[in-house]
Write a protein that binds this DNA or RNA. Structure first.
Lengths: 229, 229
DNA sequence: TGGCTGTATATTGTCGACAATATACGACGT
DNA sequence: ACGTCGTATATTGTCGACAATATACAGCCA
């Protein structure tokens, strides 16, 4: 018999950890605009924490590549241009390729329903969802594959990358792909992982990025040229 | 005519940057032992800087995975076991594979002598050098290839990885490979890059890690079992 | 008008002190 | 002897103030 405990666990996170998350979210969501200069004093006031707390978070974010530090002069939010987008795509292809291969080789049977559910979610999003929901479900599917690889460092490198990809997507540059195309590209990946076909899972995982990516990159470069940046 | 300026540029780096480098070097070299607990107060005293300076460096090192933070209780130096070594090797293979491919596709002609020189250095180290010198020259060759890829994020992810690989090598677990084997594995990579054969460069770059890696991993697991860890 | 110099200002870097938290240790009860 | 509770201690987390540095701006001179 499971009694519902009226008392909830008290959140136990330092102000540093909370500031770090709030800043990361604000950057990724565009609340702190790409390329904008940010100051410790301003953030300290807005977050209602000490400047030391903000500094701590900013150092971590700098190590994640989300902010750029100019010693003694300020910090700036990462700004992504076409070169950056190309880098994100190529690196993402490589890491997702490795994840696909390892997930196929190593996933536990108990994790198959999780992967199937993520694929179902993507299908549902393609049927009924907004472009944001599709992108989110797409991302969650890949995160699941990365998790099934059981490789902590790969997960960490992927998380780093994913944050920047999200930044890019949230900046409004994401292409809206044909939804049947999205399903058509992802289902074979999932099938290969479940079939434990490592070579196929790896190569499909890598290749689908390069296909979508080229379209996206063409678009980003065109936008960049038009904006005169 | 180049006049020799008797005045040298004054080093302009914050204490934070210097502490970060000193700590990273101490960790990678084993001066701060793997798995050991470290405290801000101790490091602050030993480095003769404020604790805030040490904190800043530790946060960055934590984001790099070289130290593990336990809030309010302390910090510990990363300790690498067989699972970690496997992760480093597989990820290294993937990133070096991407680097090889991109270096083949994208290197500037002006950079070819640099790659050739790195290969020459490796040959020289294999002829006359200590195992450490061989490992160092091997690493430098790969760093050169990564640099020739012209992909900042790849370089950054690789640098992260490399630091941990160095930590592992410096812990004394590095296998000493047959030197002609080392040359035999690296020359075809360099040739493929210079020939701009992206597929071959990528696949050789990736594969050579997996070959050497398996031997190393077998050895690490045997050592681990013997030490009862 | 443009370039150079000196000063002011804004912000980060660093400091030492106080607050928060985890862990160790001793005392007590069963 | 073991488990629980309370206190002490060690260390990190956070604070506000002072120091260091980059940048902006004003004044002066050619």
């Amino acid at each position: 018999m499971t009694a519902v405990d009226p008392l909830r666990p008290v959140e136990r996170r330092s102000a540093e950890a909370r500031a770090l998350e709030a800043l990361r979210d604000a950057i990724v969501s565009g609340g702190l605009a790409q390329g904008s200069r940010i100051t410790e004093i301003d953030l300290s006031n807005r977050l209602d924490v000490s400047r030391a707390t903000v500094r701590s978070a900013l150092h971590t974010l700098a190590a994640e590549g989300l902010v750029i530090q100019t010693p003694y002069a300020g910090w700036a939010v990462l700004s992504l241009g076409p070169d950056d987008v190309w880098e994100l795509l190529t690196l993402r292809a490589s890491l997702e390729g490795l994840a696909g291969r390892l997930a196929a080789e190593r996933h536990a049977d108990s994790e198959r329903p999780r992967l199937e559910a993520a694929m179902d979610d993507l299908r549902a999003a393609c049927m009924n969802g907004t472009p944001d929901e599709v992108a989110e479900a797409d991302f969650r599917l890949h995160e699941t594959i990365v998790a099934l690889a059981g490789h902590g460092r790969l997960s960490e490198h992927y998380r780093r990358l994913r944050t920047q990809v999200r930044l890019h997507i949230n900046a409004g540059d994401a292409l809206v792909f044909d939804k049947s195309e999205i399903i058509g590209q992802h289902e074979p990946i999932v099938r290969a992982v479940l079939a434990r076909d490592a070579a196929l899972a790896g190569s499909l995982s890598e290749q689908h990025n390069l296909t979508e990516g080229q379209l996206l990159l063409d678009r980003v470069e065109a936008d960049f040229a038009m904006s005169g940046a």
